[in-house]
Design a binder for these strands. Structure first.
Length: 742
DNA sequence: AGGTGGTTGATTTTT
DNA sequence: TCAACCACCT
């Protein structure tokens, strides 16, 4: 499934294993130390390409082979399903094909869900609770915001749900949200909304991702549940954690509670690769590991088996600009290799052309397209490369984007299954109650919902109530009764019928399948195909609930397929992967490092951006190309920028620079042959001055004042529209009539 | 119920 | 620029 990528991993070579165990022989000294230091707390600081996964899997195998623990006594936690699968495969291969089913090896969320299903009653849930996706979360919160009279235009449900998510990431339940955490967002009603949200979730027997961790913490730290904690302490003799730098506070608390028994916990990670702070990851977890786990031992893996020394030195020089790090220095015995090529280009189009040319040259020298990746900071940047690659006839694939389980028809089908599996799943029921059309409009739904909320019961039960009364029109009433009847019948079939067959039956009997079969829009055929694929895929699971759990927790196998193509993706998406040739594009101040990160998080934001640059460089085995453009179209308007500070942080002696004539060069003395460039004739059409109705003449670079946004600087002029970077609210496009010269 | 025009606002993303 | 969303219309 991930045959196109060489997953992060390189094999150690120079082992001197004292033990007879053959799997230890290929490890180098620190790797061996990391595998054999089994007792107590251990932090393995594993730099990029130093054999992290190998250490983790070998350690797991070693614990079992040496008789220290049975597989069922080891808790091994990863961040993504891909990493968990990778570990399972390797372990299985290493141990002669043992079956790993039933082991406690999985993602934080899947393991916590497994625990929570056994103990759901302790937090007022039943064990068949639904796991909501972000879309459901937003819809639920939106309903509550409307009930509380919060303006959902001014404060979007999406941004409000992320506040709740961050609270959950920090392990905060509604009652522990403190005053400092309250802002004027949602009229200061966020704590109220949070607690209503949790109440409603309980009423519909549902959890969001954050709850999986949060509820388990609540259970484990409650003295009344000491027996539960004791049981886990007895069970788990050893704990292994991957990507520790990405854990949030809740995950840390969960780990610490579970490790409280034996104290044998081994975390592997790299503080320099912490790039998920914006979604709650707490780099402090790895930085203060020694304080958190008394007597902890830190082992550094610094020999890199992936990249050339030039690449390692460049990334090392860059990351040294960060303040708080544990610190390590990567080295390799593979020689210096090529210098980094830096290209300064006029605009995004020229940048895409340059990258295209370099790719073709590499190709002529015998490099396969799949050895190359073009990495961008933000999704929209891929477009210009795609256009260029299409022109050149270069095969490429964009990784990331819409996934199978996010397609509309798949979600609808899953919503039917969810209601069958768990009748209280309001959000699923709401989704399909009138799909296909059954003549149930907004008015009816609102009546049902207000009844449900008033009585604190799920929608499903509200429908049962109201179909016993005369509040609804007879037509509506009979439609609803028929629907409940259908769901009841499907539910009763669940135990006796094959779940895939049942799935097909539901889609037929509900009329959902025929809705698409009769649809004559161009995409309808594809949707029918997708639905059939969904039914087919269900066969791989043992039951309907197991299938739904998989869908809720497991991401799509992205980027599959074979063939030779250039990979295009974001820097975040590239973490954990490696390529011979890596193109790092759009290295401009404001874009990378992103202005928004710096505005919102200051130095912390900048340092995370720098770690992102570090991750980017260290993806490369042989060659790194970095490019920046002096102007580029962003959201329709031209933006000029200077080269990223990160470009300057690459030492001159490791890089060669060429920039298109007339451009300000980033570094001073680096030059490589300039024959590769054709000077660009056309310069982007950018206005420089405008006269406002009030008679002011505004020019690019002027400092201005805007009634709503305050002070800012004009970066571009397009007729009477100005692009301005405001000191407090970032870049905005405004009309000149609202602006005065300051 | 379905279509339309006007406004808005826009990273990074896994589970 | 462009897509998503909503209010309003047919």
């Amino acid at each position: 499934m991930h045959d196109i990528f060489e997953i992060e991993e390189t094999v150690g070579k120079t082992g001197k294993a004292e033990s007879e165990a053959p799997y230890l022989e290929t490890l180098n000294t620190p790797q061996l130390d990391a595998v054999e230091t089994v007792d107590g707390a251990v932090l393995v600081l594993a730099g990029a390409g130093t054999g992290k996964t190998r250490v983790l899997t070998t350690r797991l195998a070693h614990l079992i082979n040496s008789g220290r623990a049975y597989p069922s006594q080891i808790l091994a936690v990863t961040f993504t399903n891909k990493a968990a699968l990778e570990m399972k495969e390797r372990i299985s291969a290493m141990m002669g094909g043992v079956a790993v089913e039933g082991w406690w090896l999985g993602t934080f969320h899947s393991l916590a869900a497994r625990m929570l299903r056994r103990n759901a009653d302790l937090v007022g849930l039943s064990s068949n609770f639904t796991i909501l996706n972000p879309d459901d979360q937003i819809r639920l919160l939106k309903q509550l915001m409307e009930v509380e009279g919060v303006d959902t235009k001014k404060w979007t449900p999406k941004s409000c749900i992320s506040i709740i998510d961050r609270w959950k990431d920090r392990g905060l339940v509604p009652s522990s949200v403190s005053n400092e955490d309250v802002s004027d967002i949602a009229d200061g009603k966020m704590p109220l909304l949070y607690s209503k949200y949790q109440m409603r979730m309980r009423a519909i027997n549902a959890c969001d991702f954050g709850d999986l961790m949060l509820h388990m913490i609540t259970i484990l730290k409650n003295p009344a549940n000491k027996a539960v904690l004791d049981e886990y302490h007895q069970r788990f003799k050893y704990i292994l954690v991957d990507e520790y730098q990405d854990t949030n506070v809740a995950q840390y608390l969960w780990l610490r509670l579970l490790a409280g028994g034996t104290g044998n916990i081994c975390c592997v990670g790299d503080d320099d690769q912490s790039i998920y702070g914006w979604r709650g990851a707490e780099i402090g977890n790895i930085l203060k590991f020694e304080q958190d786990f008394k007597g902890a031992k830190i082992i550094r893996l610094e020999q890199n088996y992936r990249s050339t020394n030039n690449i390692l030195k460049a990334s090392g020089a860059l990351i040294e600009n960060n303040g708080s790090r544990l610190g390590k220095t990567l080295w390799s015995d593979q020689g210096d290799g090529d210098k980094i090529k830096i290209g300064g280009l006029w605009d995004g189009e020229a940048e895409a052309r340059w990258v295209g040319e370099e790719i073709e040259q590499l190709q002529h020298k015998g490099n396969a397209l799949k050895s190359m990746a073009v990495l961008v900071r933000t999704g929209f940047q891929t477009r210009e490369f795609e256009e260029r690659f299409v022109k050149l006839g270069l095969a490429y694939k964009v990784i990331g984007g819409a996934r199978f389980y996010e397609r509309m028809e798949i979600r609808d089908a899953l919503a039917y299954f969810r209601v069958v599996a768990q009748r209280a799943d309001d959000l699923a029921l709401e989704r399909v109650i009138n799909t296909p059309k059954r003549g149930l409009g907004d008015a009816t739904i609102n009546t049902l919902y207000s009844h449900a909320r008033r009585h604190g019961i799920p929608l499903h039960d509200a429908i049962m109530d109201l179909t016993q009364s005369d509040e609804l029109r007879p037509k509506v009433k009979s439609t609803l009764m028929k629907l409940l009847d259908d769901f009841g019948r499907w539910r009763s079939l669940m135990d006796n019928m094959n779940h895939a067959e049942l799935g097909a039956l539901i889609l037929e009997e509900s009329g959902y399948m025929s809705m698409w079969k009769l649809d004559k829009t161009p995409e309808a055929a594809g949707r029918v195909e997708n639905l059939n694929e969904l039914i087919g895929g269900m066969q791989d699971y043992d039951s309907m609930p197991e299938f739904l759990e998989h869908v809720a927790l497991v991401l799509e196998n992205q980027g599959g397929g074979s063939g030779d193509f250039v990979t295009l993706m974001t820097l975040h998406g590239a973490k954990g992967l490696e390529f011979d040739n890596v193109f790092l594009t759009g290295w401009e101040e404001g874009l990378f490092p992103s202005q928004r990160s710096m505005d919102e998080k200051g130095t912390k934001g900048l340092e995370e951006e720098r770690r992102l640059a570090y991750v980017g460089i260290t993806r490369a085995r042989k060659r790194v190309f970095i490019s920046y453009a002096s102007s580029r179209r962003i959201y329709g308007s031209w933006v000029s920028s200077i080269p990223s500070r990160f470009v300057d942080e690459i030492p001159d002696d490791l890089a060669l620079l060429n920039s298109q004539s007339g451009m300000a060069a980033a570094g001073r003395s680096r030059h490589w042959d300039s024959s590769g460039f054709t000077p660009k004739v056309k310069t982007p059409s950018i206005g420089v001055k405008v006269k406002t109705d009030s008679g002011d003449v505004l020019a690019r670079g002027d400092r201005i004042f805007h009634d709503k946004f305050g002070y800012g600087k004009i970066i571009n002029i397009d007729g009477h529209k100005l692009d301005i970077i405001f000191e407090h609210s970032g870049k905005k496009r405004v009309m000149d009539s609202f602006v005065t010269k300051s």
